[in-house]
Each structure stands twice: as structure tokens, then as C-alpha cells.
């Protein structure tokens, strides 16, 4: 598969009204391609997370559109957007947000269970994905017994278990030391990224910029430029 996985057109988002109005994202347009890793970078408060939330169907923009695989998601009902997120988008949150009362395997099975897969079948599929991230032997442990890097990999396994086309990482290395952070991104690039999948990573960790195909820079809510990593071009 090739082409555009997700695109944003003239997205605008502000918070508050009147004098208290703060514009978080101004007229943002971009496209993310299959088989590529797009980084959204910029200082704190530059609007990265707000932009990411709008393109992933979590935060409604004040204006503009988001096209996911040919469909304008913000023209849909809330439940339909939820289904788009479930079926087409995988999330890896900054703090992982794993369920401490479920086992690692059950955590990975959550999106499958939301897709109405049978419990035992979902657990079997979850084991396959835990195997991919190298944590099959930890399947029955609760997440809090895993290291930060392992929890990150469980979160990745959960994100990919539903076989989404678009993966969204929010500050994936923020809670990890430099070495572990790099290993995680190397792993994502080597094992998770393929030509049928697009990965968008929000980060301000310049140590992992080298793994991006495209780096989109933001400042004060505006996209101020794109930078291609020519080292990755075939």
C-alpha cells in the first residue's frame, strides 16, 4: 500500500472565548504517508498534542477537516469516530495508560475485546503480539511489575493488536532513558512499520530525530516547516 494515510486541511483550534481565547493550532495542513514515520516536533505549548488529538479523532477542530483513508472523520457521529479510532488508529500514550488490574496479555487484548472478539481468542491473539514485542513470557504479569521500557512495548503491542493502519505515539521516549528510548524507536521502525502502516510520533526528544522520515516542525500553533530525512529515502 502507498499513498496518503491521513491528511489534515486548514485545521484551527482555539480554547476559551473572548479575551481568554487562546489559539492552539492555526491553519495546519499536512499529510502522512503509508510506510513512513512522521514526527511532529516543537517546544512545549507549540500545539503538537492538540494537532495530534484533532487528526486522531479525539478533539474536534473549530474549522478544517481530517481525512482518514478517504473519509472526513469530523463529519461523522461520535460513535462512528470512536469506531474509526478503534479500527484504524492505534494509540501509544505517553504514560502508557495500561490497566494495572489486568494482566499484560489482557491489556493487549483490550482493543480486540472492544472489537467484540471472543475473550479466549483475543488473549491468544494478544500473546502473538506480545511475542512480536518480545514479552510473551511476561504475559501473565500485571504491567506494574514490568520495567518502563517493557511497559512501553506492551503499550505498542496493544496499539498494533487491533491491526490499525495508523499508529500514533505521544512522547514515546519522555518516560524512558536515552538508550531505552532509542531502542524502542529502533524496534518500532524495524518491527512495526511496514508499507501498509503510517506512524505519527509527537516528540521533542531530539535524540530520536534520526529515525524520522519526515519531521514536521511546529511553533506557536503553526506548522513552520517540514524536513525530509534523506538518509531514509531509497
Amino acid at each position: 500500500m502507498s499513498g496518503t494515510a491521513i491528511s489534515a486541511e486548514n485545521l484551527v483550534k482555539w480554547f476559551g472565548e473572548g479575551e481568554a481565547r487562546t489559539v492552539a493550532v492555526r491553519d495546519a495542513s499536512f499529510a502522512a504517508e503509508y510506510g513512513q514515520i512522521l514526527y511532529i516536533v516543537g517546544p512545549s505549548g507549540s500545539g503538537k498534542t492538540t494537532l495530534l488529538s484533532m487528526v486522531s479523532g479525539i478533539l474536534k477542530p473549530n474549522s478544517g477537516s481530517v481525512i482518514v483513508e478517504g473519509e472526513d472523520i469530523w463529519g461523522m457521529s461520535e460513535d462512528r469516530i470512536a469506531r474509526i479510532r478503534l479500527n484504524k488508529i492505534g494509540f501509544v500514550f505517553q504514560d502508557y495508560h495500561l490497566f494495572p488490574r489486568l494482566t499484560t496479555a489482557e491489556n493487549v487484548a483490550v482493543p480486540l475485546i472492544l472489537k467484540k472478539m471472543n475473550w479466549n481468542q483475543a488473549l491468544n491473539v494478544a500473546l502473538e503480539y506480545l511475542d512480536i514485542v518480545g514479552l510473551k513470557e511476561r504475559a501473565q504479569l500485571p504491567p506494574y511489575k514490568l520495567s518502563g521500557g517493557e511497559q512501553q512495548r506492551v503499550a505498542i503491542a496493544r496499539a498494533i493488536a487491533g491491526q490499525p493502519d495508523i499508529l500514533i505515539f505521544d512522547e514515546p521516549t519522555a518516560s524512558l532513558d536515552g538508550d531505552t528510548g532509542r531502542k524502542i524507536i529502533e524496534f518500532v521502525k524495524a518491527k512495526i512499520l511496514d508499507e501498509k502502516r503510517c506512524i505519527i510520533i509527537v516528540t521533542h526528544d531530539s535524540r530520536i530525530y534520526e529515525y524520522a522520515d519526515t519531521i514536521m516542525k511546529m511553533e506557536d500553533g503553526k506548522i513552520i516547516g517540514f524536513e525530509k530525512n534523506h538518509a531514509h529515502e531509497k
Binding site: F93, D95, F99, L114, R158
Partner: peptide, 16 residues
């Protein structure tokens, strides 16, 4: 609460 929020983000509907 955050876990429920995460479930919502993943794709759980309000009625679920």
C-alpha cells in the same frame, strides 16, 4: 478515570 479515558481514546463508545 484516566484508564476509562484511555479506553475512550482507543475506541470504546460511551454506552460501553
Amino acid at each position: 478515570l484516566e484508564k476509562f479515558g484511555a479506553l475512550k481514546a482507543i475506541g470504546a463508545r460511551s454506552n460501553e
